[in-house]
Design a protein around this nucleic acid. Structure first.
Length: 260
DNA sequence: TCAGAAGTATGTCTGTTGGT
DNA sequence: ACCAACAGACATACTTCTGA
């Protein structure tokens, strides 16, 4: 495996403590004190994370993930960047890698995420078949014994989960049966409907709605993952979603069986 | 009892939305 | 650029109610 993959896949960054460990570190501090800081990280945490967030994190491993691809259509296009973040935080809570799609990246798509053919179609960039064993090992290392993995993405149902399933299928690798997929777009639509208002439900709109600051390039996988991690917790809090309801909404990989 | 109006349920079509 | 899901608008069918 290339050194690039080794160095990028388990890269920790300043967000690696987000959010549970951070809260534990901040235990005893008042909400006012938390809110008082101008720190981006601190501003995201008032009192909202404790209930469902902790309940879910304690009951399943929640992995927020995002993929960048060569296009929209999972049957024709390929993943070129993969990022995930383990909501329980701690050391090595992120996994991020570029992926060699073994095909060109259309210019109109490259303009979206700034990942062009020259960046990923190189021998030192791993193919998804190289990434799968590392990903499986990484997920196993984060998984609590006997507890499922809950993969969370925005528009997972139509996009991210399908691409992931498609890539596993291409490599004839089965997706573990205890991997469940949750779509935050469905949640966002429910929330907007419950409000009786009409506003966009895309990730950028949700980020603005919750006043989440962003750093990094738009439409890059890890940046979107970090935003979604915060949006997910805030939405589940707003909707007073129980762990049971969350798991009921989750889909199994077999539900993307039209992958062929 | 019958005709017509009103209300409800269901199906179809179209436009919008979300992801890169 | 593609595809699927969804919401809303609209049409149609059916049921219920009212008055003659």
């Amino acid at each position: 495996m290339s050194s690039i993959l080794r160095s990028s896949q388990l890269r920790n960054n300043v967000w690696s403590s987000f959010p549970v460990r951070f809260l534990k570190q901040q235990a005893g501090l008042s909400t006012a004190k938390l809110l008082g800081s101008r720190s981006c990280e601190i501003r995201h945490f008032t009192t909202q994370v404790q209930d469902l967030g902790k309940q879910v994190v304690d009951t399943a491993t929640v992995l927020i993930f995002d993929v960048e691809t060569t296009g929209f259509f999972h049957k024709d296009h390929r993943i070129i960047e993969f990022a995930l973040y383990d909501l329980s935080g701690g050391k090595n809570s992120t996994f991020e890698t570029l992926v060699n799609p073994e095909r060109t990246v259309p210019n109109h798509v490259a303009r979206v995420h700034n990942i062009g053919t020259g960046l990923v179609c190189r021998p030192d960039i791993p193919r998804f078949s190289d990434v799968i064993p590392l990903l499986l090992a990484y997920v196993r290392s984060r998984q609590a014994h006997g507890k499922p993995i809950l993969w969370v993405a925005h528009n997972a149902k139509q996009f991210d989960a399908r691409f992931l399933a498609q890539e596993f299928d291409r490599c004839s690798a089965p997706i573990p049966a205890d991997w469940l997929f949750f779509d935050t777009l469905v949640l966002a639509k429910k929330m907007v409907k419950a409000e009786g208002k009409k506003r966009p439900t895309n990730l950028e709109a949700l980020r603005e709605h919750y006043g989440i600051c962003s750093n990094g390039t738009a439409h890059r996988a890890m940046r979107d993952v970090m935003i979604l991690g915060q949006v997910f917790q805030k939405m589940t809090f707003d909707l007073k979603l129980t762990y049971k309801e969350l798991m009921n909404e989750a889909m199994r990989a077999s539900e993307f069986s039209n992958v062929s």
